[in-house]
Amino acid sequence: MLKMIVCMKQVPMVTELPWDTGTGSLKRDLAEGMMNPACKHALEAALRLKAEHDGHITAITMGPPMAEEVLREAIAMGADRCLMLSDRKMAGADTLVTSYTLARAIEIFCPDFDLILCGCHTSDSETAQVGPQLAEELDIPVIAYAEHVQLGDGSITIRRVSDNFLETLEMDMPGLITLTTHNYVPRYTPLAGLQDAFDEPNILIVSADDLGLDEAMTGIQGSPTRILDVFSPTAEKKNIVLTGAPKKIVEELFERFDDRIGSVIRKDLKVDRQSHG
């Protein structure tokens, strides 16, 4: 039996979230959540491995209670059981602490796993750090940016493109891979399945105490990185503003900047003033 774990994160569906400058926080409640695309591809890869071999899939997420939605979706797609790590104490974790927390949950609830699959990155933070750091925490090997996965005997063969090299790699199991969105297009989730997942979810909710987390390694306190401040970069230039009818604007633009544009494209853009107007 191939025991797999898929780590997934809920991300906002829109990329431009309203930013509350007053409180300096993100108005996340205004955004609908979805399963991070790369995580969904990772789950799809796991489902295909499960179909080919005798497999079992545990989906794990750490996040606010609302993030349970992605676990239900995972069950609808075919995951066997889910772990929901949700606790105020876990909030504000940076990647080092997120990977620590995920690792503790895995050690307690699925210690005999063969393969962990993660997304290569999340669409909201895009650090791409959690996968490799989780592997380090569990002391297992990692291959990031996998595009194609094939199971061998006690090992797994991965194809990927890494810095302009097309590589085939073989990794000992247990191990961790992160998946890109190039292959493994996620299956369509039938509504009926989603309904079942809501009626009878096999989801275990886990708190910081359940995991026996070291407080010095948890949430915002445990995170070695500190945010000093947050700002919107306003690289304002003293610029020329042109308004009006497009044709007039463009004529004006060329009157003033024909040299500048012409020199770059190596063409003479001057016109005889008399001949137009």
């Binding site: 991300v11 979230l17 930013w19 993100l26 895009e126 000093l228 700002f231 970069p233």
Partner: peptide, 11 residues
């Protein structure tokens, strides 16, 4: 940071 249109200074 925060997937938004902001920059954070981090230490």
């Amino acid at each position: 940071a925060f997937g938004g249109n902001v920059l954070a200074r981090i230490v």
